[in-house]
Design a protein around this nucleic acid. Structure first.
Lengths: 132, 132
DNA sequence: AATACAGTTTATAATGGTTCTAAACAACTG
DNA sequence: CAGTTGTTTAGAACCATTATAAACTGTATT
C-alpha cells in the first residue's frame, strides 16, 4: 500500500520489515530525530514481530542512501538520524543529548564564500550547542 | 618552560607526558585537526619514550575541558579535534575524511534568531560537506 | 503454480574506538 | 623526606556498529 511504491521505485524490495519500519519512521505528523537504539525501542513497541538489530541498521542505511533519512553531525558515541530531510539546522542540548529543529528562517541564509577546487558542496549544516 | 605555567595555571600537573603532548599539539606554526589515532602516530614519531594510549585520551580530554582543544562535530566513527580554538567553521571532505578550516569571513555572521528557554548558546558550528 | 535467482533477514561473531580499573608511579605540600 | 593526591599505564571491559554466512522471501520466468 502506502510505502510499497516508494520502496519499489527506489529499487528496494518492499519486505515486511521495511514496510513496518516505514510505518514507524514516516507515518507520523511530525518528523523526528533518533538514534538506532531509540528506533529499536520504538519498533519493539509498535511492531508485533521482532525485527533484528542488523535489519534495523541495514534498513536505516538503505533509507539514508536513498535520501529518506539524513544523518546529523553531532559529537556523540551514537549516530543521530532525522526523518526531516529538508535543509535545516539543529540545536543540540548537551544536557540530555536531544536535538531540536531550527527552521532556515531562524538561522538566515548561509553563504559559503570560499571554494575548494574540484569539490562540490553536498550539504551545509549548522549545529548550535546549548548549555544551561 | 613554555607549557609548565599553562598547565599549572589550569590546575593540571605539568607531567612529562603532558608537556610532550603540548609540544606536539601546540608548538607549531599552523593549527591542525586530528583524531586520537593520528595524534598517537604523531607522538610516536616525535617523542622518544612511549606514551600510553590511555594517557593520550586522558590528556586530550583534559585539554578539551580546559579549552585548549575543541571537538568538531562530524559524522565519523572517530572523534575529531582541533587545535584552533577560535570560533570558526569547517569543510569536511567526505572522500578522505579530512577537515579544512573556514574563516569566519568565508561564512559570514550567523545569527540564530530563535531562543530556547533557560538555555544558553555554547557554540555555533557550521559543517560544509564536500563531494566530488 | 512451480522454479530459480537475487536480494533480505537473521543470530551471532568480529571489529574498533573509547572508557574503566587498579596498581605503580610522580608531582606537590609541609 | 614523608605523606598525599594526581597521573600514568597495560590490559580488560564496553558498546555501537559492521561483517558473516545460512535461512528465507520477493520477483521474474516458465
Amino acid at each position: 500500500m502506502k510505502y510499497i511504491d516508494k520502496l519499489r521505485n527506489s529499487g528496494l524490495r518492499p519486505t515486511k520489515q521495511r514496510l513496518q519500519i516505514c510505518e514507524v519512521l514516516f507515518n507520523t505528523q511530525k518528523t523526528f530525530h533518533f538514534t538506532i537504539n531509540e528506533l529499536e525501542q520504538k519498533i519493539k513497541n509498535k511492531v508485533e514481530n521482532k525485527i533484528s538489530l542488523a535489519t534495523i541498521y541495514n534498513t536505516v542505511h538503505a533509507f539514508e542512501k536513498k535520501g529518506y533519512l539524513k544523518q546529523i553531525p553531532v559529537n556523540s558515541n551514537q549516530t543521530y538520524f532525522d526523518t526531516n530531510i529538508t535543509d535545516h539546522h539543529h540545536f543540540y542540548n548537551l544536557k540530555d543529548g536531544k536535538l531540536i529543529d531550527l527552521e532556515n528562517s531562524d538561522v538566515g541564509p548561509i553563504n559559503i564564500k570560499r571554494k575548494i577546487d574540484g569539490k562540490k558542496i553536498k550539504s551545509i549544516e549548522v549545529l548550535v550547542k546549548l548549555e544551561d
